[in-house]
Each structure stands twice: as structure tokens, then as C-alpha cells.
């Protein structure tokens, strides 16, 4: 027993220095982290003196002083949306990225606040989901929805996590209204003024210290309602064979369909179709869009004329624009 006890300190010392060497080696090859050296890292310092005395060259080491790096609690969160998300009423997804700016592993509690000063309307928060498959896009049924209190898994130092705030835009929202949603992220260990200390709650039983971020952060995601409508107005002019405007057999009837898109958003795949009236015959080659002629054939341009009517594909049309389509028929 005594023998074992006697050798124990020596063994412990050699293990300690071996550990220290390996720790430092890891630090040396790892790129510098934003948050600095990892919590729990031992900093050990030993000086060595060489000199010459009466018996020749000598070497002596100092004692080794050792301090352990404590855990710094820091976090940032940013909106990954390029700007306000254009939305209609219904479900919408806001995307945020959380970064553990501290130097140790830490989990974070998330709070989404839909009632933000200046909002034209408030959304309803349906949940917060984690980008489980890491593709940056919310995938229902794949990306895990957090349960209250919404808390992330433990993130390593410098690790980032993408989260989604799932909201519902109320039916009462109207075109051009805006609404912000705030996501607040707080270190689970604790938050507070920079320098606030949580004794014994850091890595390896060390202390956890609140860093410059206060160990909490807030980012804002924005929604912009774009409700867009399409108004079609059809008008007609008639030229009869005698230079008048009577609707008689042989009169040429020009129909004009004005497609007006109203609202701040845009509409996709806007296709305008119109059937030829009974007892009329389409005048081949008279289909126009915005003053330019379109062929009657299908596929070569935006428009086509068939035996029964015309069809013009306007594609994606921004709000605030009006396009006119015309075609001629003769009265049989």
C-alpha cells in the first residue's frame, strides 16, 4: 500500500505533463477560433535556467504554474432571410442562424416574439424547428420541431445551427403590411452583464463567465404582405363594311382585353384565354400583345389562336402593370 502511494505523485505528474503537451499540440494545429482557446484548456508555464558555476554548466527548472481557462458564454443570432419575406396569408417560415461564440459547449433556449413594436399586424408563432438535415430549408416532417421550452442541443464552441420560426400570417393582413418576428437566444447556463460569473458551471467544473454579448442575442425576421389581384377588362370596337360602327354581317370586331395586375407582389403563370363569340370568325394573324403581333401558331411565342379562341401566356407579371391583348373577328 505504502509503495503504491509513494509512486502515485510521480505517476500523476508525468500523466499531467503528457496531457498538457497533447492539449497544446491540438491548439497549435487548430485554426484560431473566434472565441479563443477552449474552456478547460490548461495553461502551464515553466522557465528553465542554464548557467555555469564552479563545477561546470548547470540546468534548473522552475516549478510549473498552471491555470485553467474558464468557459466564456457568448452567442449571436442572425436572420438568414435576405430581406422581408414576401408573403400572402397563411403559413410562412423565417430562417435564423445561431452561433455559439463562446469557448465551450453550450445549449441555448429560443424564444420567438411575434408582437414587435411597429408591426402592422402580428403573426402567430406555430413553433421553432431545427434544420435537422442541414439543407437550410424547412422540411416539414424532417426538421425537428422543438418542444417547450425550446432549447437547442449542445453546440460546440464556434458551432452554428440553423433554426426556423414557423408563423401564420392572419387572414386580416392586407397588401403591403409589414410584420417583424424577433428570435431571442439565451445561454442555458445563464445570461447577464458581461463578466457575470456562474461558479462551477463551466467546462470541467470551472466557472462560466458571461462574455461581451451578455450570453444572449436577438435577431429580427420580417414579413411583407404582397396580395396581388388581376383585373381583366374587355372592350370592343366595330367597323362595318360601310365605314360605320354597326354590327352587321361582314363587320370587323376588334376585342381588346386589358389585364391589369394590382398589388405589391406579382402573379405567376398568368394566362389569358378568350373564346370567339358564336357566329363570328377569327381574322387570322390579328392577335397582338402590347401592340406587338403574335402568330396564331402554338409554341413560338406567348400567344396562339385556335379554332375556338385565343390564349396568351403572360408568365410572371409584377403588380402595377397593365398589358393589352387584341384580336379581330368578323361577323358571319
Amino acid at each position: 500500500m505504502n509503495t503504491q502511494n509513494l509512486i502515485r505523485p510521480a505517476l500523476a505528474n508525468s500523466l499531467g505533463s503528457a496531457l498538457a503537451v497533447s492539449l497544446f499540440a491540438v491548439v497549435a494545429v487548430t485554426p484560431a477560433k473566434a472565441a479563443g482557446v477552449d474552456a478547460g484548456t490548461l495553461i502551464e508555464n515553466t522557465a528553465t535556467a542554464t548557467y555555469v558555476d564552479g563545477t561546470g554548466p548547470q540546468t534548473v527548472d522552475s516549478n510549473t504554474v498552471s491555470v485553467r481557462v474558464d468557459e466564456l458564454l457568448d452567442v449571436t443570432v442572425t436572420s438568414l432571410d435576405a430581406g422581408p419575406i414576401g408573403t400572402a396569408t397563411g403559413d410562412e417560415v423565417l430562417t435564423f442562424e445561431i452561433t455559439n461564440q463562446g469557448n465551450g459547449p453550450e445549449a441555448f433556449e429560443l424564444t420567438a416574439e411575434p408582437a414587435v413594436a411597429g408591426n402592422d399586424f402580428d403573426t402567430t408563432v406555430d413553433g421553432i424547428a431545427v434544420d435537422t438535415n442541414g439543407n437550410g430549408t424547412y422540411d416539414p416532417g424532417v426538421d425537428q420541431i422543438l418542444t417547450a421550452p425550446e432549447t437547442t442541443a449542445v453546440l460546440d464552441a464556434d458551432e452554428t445551427l440553423t433554426v426556423f420560426v414557423l408563423v401564420t400570417v392572419p387572414a386580416s393582413a392586407t397588401d403591403t403590411q409589414e410584420s417583424d418576428v424577433e428570435l431571442t437566444v439565451e445561454a442555458v447556463t445563464g445570461t447577464g452583464a458581461p463578466g457575470t460569473s456562474f461558479a462551477g458551471q463551466g467546462v470541467s467544473g470551472g466557472d462560466a463567465i458571461v462574455g461581451t454579448t451578455g450570453a444572449d442575442a436577438t435577431a429580427t425576421g420580417s414579413l411583407l404582405v404582397g396580395i396581388t389581384t388581376v383585373d381583366l377588362v374587355k372592350s370592343v370596337t366595330i367597323v362595318d363594311p360601310f365605314g360605320g360602327t354597326s354590327a352587321v354581317p361582314g363587320s370587323v370586331v376588334t376585342f381588346t382585353i386589358s389585364a391589369e395586375v394590382v398589388g405589391s407582389g406579382s402573379v405567376d403563370n398568368l394566362i389569358v384565354t378568350d373564346a370567339f363569340p358564336a357566329d363570328t370568325t377569327y381574322v387570322a394573324g390579328t392577335l397582338t400583345l402590347a401592340g406587338g403581333a403574335l402568330t396564331d401558331a402554338s409554341g413560338d411565342d406567348a400567344g396562339e389562336a385556335t379554332a375556338t379562341g385565343i390564349s396568351v401566356d403572360l408568365g410572371t407579371v409584377a403588380g402595377g402593370t397593365t398589358q393589352a391583348i387584341t384580336f379581330d373577328v368578323t361577323i358571319d
Binding site: F24, A25, V27, A28, V37, T41, L42, I43, E44, N45, T46, A47, T48, A49, T50, Y51, V52, D53, G54, P57, Q58, V69
Partner: peptide, 19 residues
């Protein structure tokens, strides 16, 4: 702490890599 003068006294201190 001895009673003789030592010469060529050099103190070398490797920096811990964490600092």
C-alpha cells in the same frame, strides 16, 4: 543561494501555446 558567482545565466521560458 550559493556562495559563488554563476556566469552565463540564461533563463528560457517556452510560451504556453494557449497564450
Amino acid at each position: 543561494s550559493s556562495d559563488e558567482t554563476v556566469t552565463n545565466f540564461v533563463v528560457t521560458n517556452p510560451l504556453p501555446s494557449a497564450v
